[in-house]
Amino acid sequence: MSLSQVNHKTKIVETKQGQFKNSILNFLNKMGIIVVVILLCLLFSILSSDFLTWNNIVNVARQTSISAILAAGMTFVILTGGIDLSIGAIVALSGVCAVYFSGFMPAPLGILCGILIGGAAGYVNGFLTSVTRLPAIIVTLGSMTYLRGIAYVVTGGYPLMVESSFFKSIGTGYVGPIPIPVIIMIVVFVIAHLVLKYTVFGRNIYMVGGNEEAARLTGIKVTSSLTWVYTISGICAGIAGVILAARLFSGQPNAGMGYELDAIAAVVLGGTSLVGGVGFIIGSLFGALFMGILSNGLTLLNVPYYWQLIIKGLVIVLAIYIDRVRRKRD
């Protein structure tokens, strides 16, 4: 066999090895969080006999639904290379407004008003970010403060009690054996998946996140796309706020604190890059499940709350580090 033939076969083997390595890495990018969630479930099922009971599974799903819905909206924002630190405040504002309006109008209409207020808050974030070109972290940091302040003004600093049984059922009711918040979560993710995968708007989001200037040159309305993704994030936060108020039987102005960090961690753990352009919505769902299962498992193991905060903080740092490693490799 000649030297050229040996070199040719060597190149073929190296190419196949490279393709195999890339396929493994792509699989881990998309499916790694699913594997991690399964392993985490196995670990907690071994450490606690209460973990795999039906009641606990339902409890985890119901608790995760709020953070997952927030993660769905955050995915849209992060895919464009942005960030939304205001969703925790929008959760509080939408919840108290929904309860307030439900006090003198039919509960479904009051709930809709609360969600629309969340969408309006998101629209303002998107407008300021896209039109004035202010950094998203600055815009949403400011709105995180003033929106929380508005929630305190609406309530006078006190919780508003939910009187409507319909309203309460959104947070505590069931359809068959499935909690209503879980059903809402599933609907949100199905819609988000369809939008991102099968619509022009969804493709535009990926293009804007990949290269905003190139997207603009190809005719994409970048300003409109950015405004809409923050509006979607606000709507998702509004839905989460209504569910939380229904679960607590009250709209509380201090609700939702720290929720933005859980949502960001879930999205990044799910494979969405913080610089934008790369990610998928199902990964965000499993990222949220990971955070929910972690909290539940630590609680079942009687780990003190303060230590849980430390562990969750380290997970957030790990998620950002993983994203950095991923971007370097790409």
Rank of each mutant, 00 (worst) to 15 (best):
S165D: 15
F167G: 05
Y152W: 11
I66W: 06
D84M: 12
V96S: 00
C97Q: 05
P159H: 08
V91M: 11
V162D: 07
Q63S: 15
P135R: 08
F76E: 07
G157M: 12
L70Y: 05
G103M: 00
I69P: 02
T132L: 15
Q63L: 14
G119W: 00
L93S: 00
A68V: 13
A107F: 02
F167T: 04
S67L: 13
I150F: 14
S102Q: 02
G110T: 02
L160F: 14
G126H: 05
S143H: 04
L116T: 03
T80P: 09
G103Y: 02
V139K: 01
P135A: 05
S169R: 09
T75P: 13
S67K: 10
S164P: 05
G118V: 01
V131D: 09
V131Y: 15
G88H: 09
T80H: 09
S86G: 07
V124E: 09
S164F: 04
V91Q: 02
S143C: 12
G114H: 05
P108T: 13
A107V: 01
L116I: 10
A89G: 09
T140V: 12
A72F: 09
R133Q: 13
C97L: 14
I170K: 04
V139E: 03
I90W: 04
G122A: 03
A98M: 04
R133C: 07
G81T: 12
Y100N: 03
L70F: 10
Q63N: 15
V154Y: 02
Y152T: 06
Y146G: 00
C113V: 15
C97M: 13
G171I: 08
I78T: 07
V124Q: 07
I138P: 03
F166W: 15
R148M: 07
G171A: 13
G73H: 13
S86A: 13
M161L: 14
G73I: 10
